[in-house]
Design a protein around this nucleic acid. Structure first.
Length: 452
RNA sequence: GUGGUUGUAGCUCAGUUGGUUAGAGCGUCGGUUUGUGGUACCGAAAGUCGCGGGUUCGAGCCCCGUCUCCCACCCCA
């Protein structure tokens, strides 16, 4: 028989790995809750009409599409099949797809539930998303995103709080990070000043590659998109900005003086930097004009977080979108949000081995016994310990000690309660510390005190 | 979507110019030990050598195809 396997780009997680992953999810959740965000969930699959066209041309190709139930070819004529036009045929036999991110389904959710929602609406969502990408380092076809968004508020305090959340989450996870920040309005201003407003997407995609391919290649790429030499010349001082964040903004003010939208972006950034400063945000924050982010729905601040000690893509990203719900028919709702890439954070933590010694989920005590009588004797003890919130289990068969102790050892259970005739006669158990090897004849109260 | 790379036991890997019955370590299970795990010693189970075809008296090894893993590009978390 063929060995069973799982699809490309997906992973299984063992109990030990899940304990580590839950540590990440729990940490992120706790911080989200501290800031008043509430959890929602949406279905794994959405109608393709909801998903298509929201992620650009590339994004549409990366959507996993779900075949219609039943005879999905029944509605198709032979001519249509002969035409072999995949794009056209797909819409005929697939009307659902797996979600590509959490933001677009969230926008759909907001529009659909607009009359039940009190604005500003602060929600968080931790669920897997799927992309038909080719897997490689730090890239999976199924991965978890942890999204926090606020919709229905234009205030830049929301941007501040998201930055504080990033600050707090990575402080708790002990990952050193750099928060890169930019503003779509500044990018628009730049396009306006050099007279290529309609080419803004091409320009941002190109300058996003500054780090990777360097100034010269970026200029080549911009030129190849049909942008004039004159405009490229005007772009140069902007690509070469230097100094502190505020110094960069001062230089930009000179260049962008004639652009209303550009100046607005600069003002926003000044406010955000000022707030971060006042609130003593510790994470290193860097204004990075090469940060563009491919998603075209952003309209204001853009964020991206990179781990400093591990070579991996960005581990968190997000930004302000003024009209995400507009495509679903609800105008004038502004939102801002970020997404923590749980699977990349997991990879970072694995590489740096930053997990806490003990997991809250782990069993604290295992009861082992020598016979059927002893098994029954243990049951009330287990109930009592569990009532106190202590994770306790019993080895369900009175087999050899070696086997039972080995079980405790393998599960890294720190305490074992050994029960035989002697202990039963005294109404106690032999409590063994698996690390030190010490053992003490103990009462129930002793156990609760030791483990509680 | 483009290019490169990998595939032998549950895991990590050996395997001679093509030659009998494909090996090791770790892990698993059992025993040494019927009141004690993590150490030690002994033993066992476990492989269609990714899959399909070809060359050959003979293929884990050579050839073709295919799938897969990983990596880079594109794009992204």
């Amino acid at each position: 028989m063929q060995k069973p396997s799982i699809p490309k780009g997906t992973r299984d997680f063992t109990p030990r790995e899940m304990a580590n992953r839950n540590y990440i999810f729990n940490t992120i959740k706790e911080v989200f809750c501290l800031y008043g965000f509430q959890q929602i969930e949406t279905p794994a699959m959405e109608n393709l009409s909801t998903l298509m066209g929201k992620y650009g041309e590339e994004g549409d190709k990366l959507l996993f599409k779900i075949l219609n139930s039943g005879d999905y070819l029944s509605g198709l004529s032979d001519e249509e099949l002969q035409g072999r036009n995949s794009a056209k045929l797909t819409s005929k036999f697939s009307e659902k797809g797996l979600r590509y991110d959490l933001t677009v389904p969230f926008a759909r959710f907001v529009v659909q539930h607009q009359n039940e929602i009190t604005f500003p609406f602060k929600r968080y969502q931790i669920q897997p998303v799927w992309r038909a990408d080719r897997p490689q380092k730090g890239r999976y076809r199924e991965f978890y995103q942890c999204d926090v968004d606020v919709v229905g508020s234009d205030s830049l305090l929301n941007e501040l709080e998201l930055i504080q959340i990033v600050d707090e989450v990575y402080r708790r996870l002990k990952i050193n990070v750099c928060l890169k920040i930019n503003n779509r309005k500044i990018l628009s201003g730049i396009a306006e000043i050099i007279g290529e407003s309609e080419k803004i997407t091409d320009i941002t995609v190109a300058i996003d590659k500054m780090d990777k391919i360097g100034l010269e290649k970026v200029n080549e790429e911009i030129a190849s998109k049909g942008i004039s030499a004159d405009a490229i010349a005007k772009l140069q001082p902007i690509l070469l900005l230097s100094g502190t964040n505020l110094e960069k903004l001062q230089q930009l003010k000179v260049v962008l003086a004639a652009s209303e939208v550009g100046m607005k972006g600069i003002a926003e950034m000044e406010t955000i930097f000022g707030l971060c400063d006042a609130m003593k945000v510790k994470t290193q924050i860097e204004l990075d004009l090469t940060l563009a982010r491919g998603l075209n729905y952003y309209t204001g601040a853009i964020f991206e977080v990179k781990a400093l000690d591990v070579e991996i893509g960005s581990i968190t990203g997000g930004g302000r979108y003024d009209n995400l719900t507009g495509v679903f028919g609800l105008q004038g709702v502004s939102g801002v949000g970020i997404s923590f890439g749980a699977d990349r954070i997991y990879d970072v933590l694995n590489q740096l081995n930053l997990y806490p010694e003990t997991s809250v989920e782990q069993t604290k005590i295992l009861f082992v016994s020598f016979g059927e009588q002893e098994l029954l004797y243990c049951l009330p003890w287990l109930t009592a310990l569990r009532a106190k919130g202590i994770n306790a289990e019993i080895y369900p068969e009175p087999t050899k000690m070696k086997k039972q102790m080995g079980y405790a050892d393998n599960k890294r259970i720190p305490f074992v309660a050994i029960v035989g005739e002697t202990e039963m006669n005294e109404g106690k158990v032999m409590l063994k510390n698996m690390v030190s090897g010490e053992q003490v004849l103990s009462t129930l109260e002793d156990l609760i005190e030791q483990l509680g």
